[in-house]
Structure formats: structure tokens, C-alpha cells
């Protein structure tokens, strides 16, 4: 046993963060839990309902549909953005003036606010005056994202890929640049192919940053609201109504705070579970 005196006073330094998290996360979350077991008609008057809202949400077809759409959307954008981001990172230069140019160009989409991205793509994809919409129609595609569910999905996915692939690329690039040259020299001496270099050097070295990239993109895309809301408003019909859009419709549109709170908790638990499973599985064999 070590007899070294431990000074635990440094723990006080995390107090500001604890307070901040308490005010912006814990207290709101507690309030949501409180709302989820009650009914209100406004004026801060509440009626206890027990677990009824949870039961309703679990049995609700509307929730199942929104959840299904949400998982599909997240799976599609992860399947596109992660490989594409890695490919872009592999193509980016390591030295010279082009490094800064590439980095700035890659960062640009990330700097644009969500609602502006939605508005940009809304106009860009309009079938009669938008550059994308008009071009696709001129090429012979019958494209109209305000009318056709498939076109709306295509546009929402293209928008997300445009907005967020840079993040994956920049993270992967950071992972790649941290690999010492000695690894590549050794690979060259052994006559390794480009695929082997990628498979046995670059990919394992990028594992941590890719884990972060996948987690960030999973959580962000699972909570996506502003961009599809501005672009399609959840339509046509309900075809691009993802969970958060549905949640806002329920909470603010219908003022059903109880069911919306129950739905938020289920939504939160799903994100927590998937993130934990993913993180645990990925980090399982780490030293």
C-alpha cells in the first residue's frame, strides 16, 4: 500500500462544470421525467397519469414509423459518410500549401448554421428554379422533392452528406497524420500493397478517431431536426418526419407535453444504449 498523501482539492476545480451540467442537462432532464408521468393543459397545473404516456408511445404506430425512418436515415448516412470521409482523408495532401487550402475548404460546410444549410438546399433543389432540381429535370429525371418521398429522402441524405462528411474527413485526416513515417517505410521495405498499408497500418491507427466520428455522426443524425425541418418540413406527408420533428410536433404543435416527455425519455434511452454498445464493442480490445 502506498502511503503517499493524496491531495483531493483539485476536485473543486470541476465544480463549475458540474454546476453547468446540472443546469443545462440534469435539471431539464429531471423536469422531462416529471412531465412524462403527468398531463397538463397549461398554467402550470398538472394531473398525475402514471405510466400511461409510456404505454401509449410504446404502442403508437406513429412512434414506430418515426423510429424506423430515423434508424434508416442514420444507417444510410453512416454508410455513406464514414467511407467517403476516409477516402477523402486518404486523398488529402500531407505537406505543402495545399494542406491549408484543403483544410479550409473541408471546414466550410461545418461552419454554416443548420437552418442556413436547410434553406440553401431548399432553394438549390427546387424543381423549377433551383440549380440541382432544374438540372436533374433537364437531364430527364422526374425530380420533385416537395412531392415525391424518394426525392425528398435523396435530398435530405445528400444535404447531410454535404454538411457532415467533412467532419469525418477531418477526424480521419487527424488520425492519418499522427502515424509516424517509420510505419510506412517499414511497409515499403516489405513491399506491402496500398491495400495492406491501409488495412494493417492506417485503419488500425484511425480506429479511435473513427469511433469518435461514428459516435458523433450517430448521435447528431439521430437527433437531426433543423435541416430536414427547413428543407421538407417532414413531408411529403410524413415521409421525412424523423423522431425529433415528430417530437416537436407533439410537444409544441399539439401541446401534448406528457406524451412528448415520455417519447423523449425513450428516445434518450435508445441513444444512450446504442452509443454505449458501440463504444464498448469498439474499445473492447483496446490496450
Amino acid at each position: 500500500m502506498s502511503t503517499k498523501t493524496q491531495n483531493n482539492h483539485a476536485w473543486w476545480l470541476v465544480l463549475p462544470v458540474v454546476l453547468l451540467v446540472a443546469f443545462n442537462a440534469v435539471i431539464p432532464l429531471m423536469t422531462v421525467v416529471n412531465y412524462s408521468v403527468q398531463e397538463t393543459f397549461g398554467d402550470n397545473v398538472f394531473f398525475f397519469e402514471g405510466v400511461r404516456w409510456f404505454q401509449d408511445i410504446l404502442a403508437s404506430e406513429r412512434f414506430h414509423d418515426a423510429l424506423g425512418r430515423q434508424f434508416l436515415f442514420t444507417a444510410i448516412i453512416l454508410a455513406i459518410e464514414i467511407p467517403l470521409g476516409v477516402i477523402i482523408a486518404l486523398c488529402m495532401p500531407r505537406k505543402g500549401v495545399w494542406v491549408s487550402v484543403c483544410l479550409v475548404l473541408m471546414s466550410l460546410p461545418l461552419l454554416i448554421p443548420w437552418n442556413v444549410v436547410g434553406a440553401m438546399w431548399n432553394i438549390f433543389a427546387l424543381p423549377d428554379i433551383g440549380l440541382l432540381g432544374k438540372t436533374l429535370n433537364a437531364l430527364g429525371f422526374d425530380y420533385n422533392y416537395t412531392r415525391e418521398p424518394m426525392d425528398a429522402w435523396f435530398t435530405v441524405i445528400a444535404m447531410d452528406v454535404w454538411h457532415w462528411t467533412s467532419l469525418v474527413a477531418l477526424l480521419a485526416y487527424a488520425g492519418l497524420t499522427s502515424i509516424p513515417d517509420a510505419y510506412f517505410q517499414a511497409a515499403r521495405i516489405d513491399g506491402a500493397s496500398a491495400w495492406s498499408v491501409f488495412r494493417y497500418i492506417q485503419l488500425p491507427k484511425m480506429k479511435r478517431v473513427l469511433t469518435i466520428a461514428i459516435l458523433l455522426r450517430f448521435m447528431d443524425s439521430f437527433m437531426i431536426y433543423t435541416e430536414p425541418f427547413v428543407l421538407t418540413g417532414g413531408g411529403p406527408g410524413n415521409t421525412t418526419t424523423f423522431l425529433s420533428i415528430d417530437l416537436v410536433k407533439m410537444a409544441l404543435g399539439q401541446f401534448d407535453l406528457g406524451p412528448a416527455a415520455a417519447m423523449s425519455i425513450i428516445y434518450f434511452l435508445i441513444i444512450l444504449l446504442v452509443s454505449w454498445v458501440f463504444y464498448t464493442v469498439t474499445m473492447r480490445n483496446e490496450d
Partner: peptide
């Protein structure tokens, strides 16, 4: 804290 709409049940849960 009245805006937080506490109930005895949820208070017990957090306790």
C-alpha cells in the same frame, strides 16, 4: 421549483 412539476413518485425515483 414549481415549474419542474415534481411528483412524489418522480422525487422518490431520483432519490
Amino acid at each position: 421549483i414549481s415549474w419542474m412539476a415534481w411528483t412524489p413518485q418522480t422525487a422518490l425515483f431520483f432519490l
